[in-house]
């Protein structure tokens, strides 16, 4: 066991998959010599050489397109979009190529590509660098969208993503990159994608979140417990596939649900979670299901971030309102 940040845990996972499978290659902007702008791939080029860990030009569409070709011919590319806001340049490649190789070839080929991208606010960066647009990828059939909230989950889910046969968009909450440390094992392990984690069991209300927002959700859950509200806290870990049965089971028990995420509310990922609740637990609901998310505006400049990202206090307030409904 070793105490690691999420950056170290992801670096550790990358080292493991590069070691265990010589078909794995890792590339993107500043990924090689620099070791990534967030140091996620630090030391990996020195260890595995320039043919397996390398720098690409500033050309996201090219990064994704070359990965499609590599994957079709037997490699397993892990590519990095330096910030999720830059990935729109590659949107055509991701939706029309990456997500469809299996369908288009009637299962004869797959596209085992992992697209890593830091997302979200909280590090005082400008707007293209701070947004949470995971639903754009979660709405595309053929892609899995994974968002970890702890070093342990980040490592296990990333290893599962790389070992899989299908494309995964792996979004990393950059404000949690270094703010949380956790004892995790240095040896390989994997966590199957598509399985939510029940972080804390409770009986009064289900609080569902993922990624960066789990930080505030955990705090809110603790505060609410002290106020006598028994919160069941669920980290869904993957936006797609969504673990419908864990969500359904919990809400059938508690009868109340609050979904928390960082990006804008309208047409966001919370809507899919809420409609899952409708499908799975409508007759058990004792209060309307609710969402607490970012405002319907562009991710703000640094001075506005603290007003945009929901605080634990706001989450507790919503939990109380729902329990008292």
């Amino acid at each position: 066991m070793k105490n690691m940040t999420m950056v170290q845990a992801i670096n550790n996972a990358l080292e493991i998959v590069l070691t265990e499978n010589e078909k794995v290659v890792l590339y993107g902007e500043d990924v090689g010599v620099e070791g990534g702008v967030f140091r996620v791939s630090a030391g990996l080029q020195e260890k595995f050489g320039e043919k397996r860990v390398f720098d690409s030009p500033l050309a996201e569409s090219g990064i994704a397109g070359t990965a499609v070709g590599m994957a079709a011919t037997g490699l397993k590319p892990i590519i990095e979009m330096q910030f999720s806001g830059f990935s729109y340049h590659a949107f055509h490649q991701i939706i029309n190529q990456v997500s469809r190789i299996r369908n288009r070839s009637r299962g004869r080929h797959t596209a085992p590509i992992v697209i890593r991208m830091p997302y979200g606010g909280g590090i005082k960066a400008p707007e293209h660098h701070s947004e949470s647009m995971e639903v754009l990828y979660a709405a595309i059939p053929g892609l899995k969208v994974v968002i970890p909230s702890t070093p342990h989950d980040a490592k296990g889910l990333l290893i599962d993503a790389v070992r899989g046969e299908d494309p995964v968009v792996f979004m990393e909450p950059k404000r949690l990159y270094r703010s949380v440390k956790q004892e995790i094992q240095e040896e390989e392990y994997s966590i199957p994608i598509g399985k939510a984690s029940v972080v804390q069991e409770g009986s009064d209300i289900t609080l569902i979140s993922y990624g960066a927002s789990m930080k505030e959700a955990r705090k809110a859950s603790d505060t609410a417990q002290k106020k006598g509200i028994s919160v069941e806290l669920i980290d869904i870990r993957s936006i797609y596939p969504l673990d419908r049965s864990t969500i359904g089971e919990s809400v059938r028990k508690t009868g109340r649900v609050l979904v928390v995420h960082e990006g804008p509310e309208s047409y966001g990922p919370g809507a899919e979670v809420l409609t899952t609740v409708i499908d799975e637990a409508f007759l058990y609901l004792e209060a309307p299901p609710r969402r607490l998310s970012g405002f319907d505006t562009i991710a703000p400049y640094p001075q506005g971030e603290e007003w945009y990202i929901h605080t634990p206090e706001r989450i507790v307030y919503e939990l109380q309102r729902l329990v008292e409904y």
Binding site: Y240, S266, Y267, A271, L274, T275, I278, P289
Partner: peptide
């Protein structure tokens, strides 16, 4: 999945 119907259904449920 994650289509606009999810938002419409959610708003109906909430309100």
């Amino acid at each position: 999945n994650n289509g606009v119907g999810a938002e419409i259904a959610s708003q109906i449920m909430e309100a």
